[in-house]
Amino acid sequence: MSATIDFIIDDKEIQGRPGQTILEAAQQNGIYIPRLCYREGLVPHGSCRICTVLVNGRPQSACTQPIAPGMIVENDTEKMNGLRRNIIDMLFVEGNHFCMFCEKSGNCELQALAYRLGITAPKYPYMFPKRDVDATHPDIFIDRNRCILCGRCVRASRDVDGKHIFEFVGRGPHKRVEVNAEANLADTDISMTDEAVEACPVGALLKKRVGYAVPIGQRLYDHKPIGSDIESGVAPASSR
């Protein structure tokens, strides 16, 4: 087996290693493929669909699709970015996202993607669902209004923390993240240092008493779009 695989992303010739996904190989080559449910170190989930690219004309999620020699990938095109905007719009209207007072604002990956893709308002009607907040735990809270069902907490808790505190229950529009207890987060063995807490891309799972610590203007995505670090080759390895 050859040590490298040659393929093409948006007219650019790319080399990747066998076993890499499209997203990983692209990232290594300084190409950012927008993503949300993907997080380095966790099993790819393929659920948000933001990272969908066309592979030889067929849609595939870049976070789960392995690279193959000669494949032609369309990523940063008006068509794909338009479809991604639609998905982001869906996530915004599906929940209750009040950016103006959210502790995660400025560091939120959902918001950052919307900024990057130039969304000023979602094209779909807001659903204003009734969702719960679980603030029972002394140090950590869940605000399900902001949950986008990416499963990062589920996977981090299960695979990294070895605790399996979170899991999806229900299906379809009734799907939600539940905790491994009769009712409350306080009844689980979650702790401040759990990877699961770090893994949340939005403000659905947060530590208490540390909100708004970084002033506006100094937050992750205040000045540069999400993915800029990958595109400038600054920090591809650690970038999420």
Binding site: G46, S47, C48, R49, I50, N86, I87, M90, L91, V93, E94, Y124, P125, M127, I148, L149, F168, G170, R171, G172, P173, H174, K175
Partner: peptide
């Protein structure tokens, strides 16, 4: 809408829309 597993965004939200 009722039968979607809810795993991925477009199917879970798109059909409702």
């Amino acid at each position: 809408i009722e039968e979607s597993c809810g795993y991925c965004t477009p199917c879970r939200v798109g059909n409702v829309l």
